[in-house]
Computed example of a mutant assay.
Amino acid sequence: MERYANLGGDSGVVGYEIGDDFVRIQFSDGSIYLYTYASAGANNIEQMKRLAQNGQGLNAFINRHVRKAYARKER
């Protein structure tokens, strides 16, 4: 899991892992959610990858666009 840069300073996201067709997100409460092409759509996953790597805007994007579109909660 990569550490999320959190350039805005107020994100609930602390880490992420990127795969070909998924993004795994770790939140500050320790929960980890898996978002996939199948669950959230390819365009959303690709945007989440960009935001994760840029270190800003990921938490807001998740809340606005894919909040409950995860494939599974892992922890």
Results as ranks from 00 to 15, higher is better:
residue 67 R to A: 05
residue 70 Y to L: 11
residue 49 K to N: 10
residue 35 Y to D: 02
residue 59 N to M: 15
residue 71 A to K: 09
residue 63 N to W: 08
residue 20 D to Y: 03
residue 12 G to I: 10
residue 68 K to Y: 03
residue 10 D to P: 02
residue 10 D to Q: 10
residue 4 Y to L: 14
residue 53 Q to K: 13
residue 29 D to Y: 08
residue 30 G to M: 08
residue 72 R to T: 01
residue 45 I to K: 01
residue 41 G to K: 07
residue 73 K to N: 14
residue 45 I to V: 14
residue 16 Y to M: 01
residue 12 G to T: 10
residue 17 E to T: 10
residue 65 H to K: 14
residue 37 Y to R: 01
residue 37 Y to Q: 02
residue 37 Y to G: 00
residue 73 K to W: 05
residue 7 L to Y: 01
residue 3 R to V: 15
residue 67 R to L: 11
residue 56 Q to S: 08
residue 61 F to M: 09
residue 59 N to R: 15
residue 49 K to W: 15
residue 39 S to T: 11
residue 26 Q to Y: 06
residue 9 G to S: 04
residue 69 A to M: 06
residue 72 R to Q: 14
residue 22 F to G: 00
residue 7 L to I: 12
residue 48 M to I: 10
residue 22 F to Q: 02
residue 75 R to M: 09
residue 52 A to H: 13
residue 45 I to A: 04
residue 61 F to V: 10
residue 11 S to C: 06
residue 71 A to R: 08
residue 39 S to A: 14
residue 34 L to N: 09
residue 55 G to S: 03
residue 42 A to D: 13
residue 50 R to T: 02
residue 29 D to K: 11
residue 6 N to L: 07
residue 34 L to R: 14
residue 19 G to M: 08
residue 65 H to M: 06
residue 28 S to G: 13
residue 40 A to E: 00
residue 71 A to H: 04
residue 54 N to V: 03
residue 68 K to R: 12
residue 12 G to Y: 04
residue 58 L to P: 11
residue 53 Q to Y: 00
residue 26 Q to I: 12
residue 22 F to R: 05
residue 51 L to S: 05
residue 57 G to Q: 06
residue 33 Y to S: 07
residue 75 R to P: 07
residue 48 M to V: 09
residue 59 N to A: 15
residue 56 Q to A: 04
residue 5 A to R: 01
residue 27 F to R: 06
residue 20 D to H: 03
residue 41 G to Y: 12
residue 73 K to G: 03
residue 15 G to N: 06
residue 57 G to L: 03
residue 68 K to S: 09
residue 40 A to W: 00
residue 5 A to P: 00
residue 36 T to I: 15
residue 62 I to C: 13
residue 36 T to S: 15
residue 28 S to E: 15
residue 62 I to W: 07
residue 62 I to H: 07
residue 14 V to Q: 07
residue 51 L to E: 01
residue 13 V to A: 04
residue 35 Y to P: 03
residue 33 Y to G: 07
residue 30 G to T: 11
residue 47 Q to M: 05
residue 54 N to C: 03
residue 61 F to W: 12
residue 10 D to Y: 10
residue 57 G to C: 03
residue 53 Q to A: 06
residue 60 A to K: 14
residue 43 N to A: 02
residue 9 G to N: 05
residue 57 G to F: 02
residue 6 N to F: 00
residue 27 F to Q: 07
residue 4 Y to S: 12
residue 31 S to C: 05
residue 7 L to P: 04
residue 15 G to P: 04
residue 3 R to D: 11
residue 51 L to D: 01
residue 9 G to K: 07
residue 35 Y to C: 12
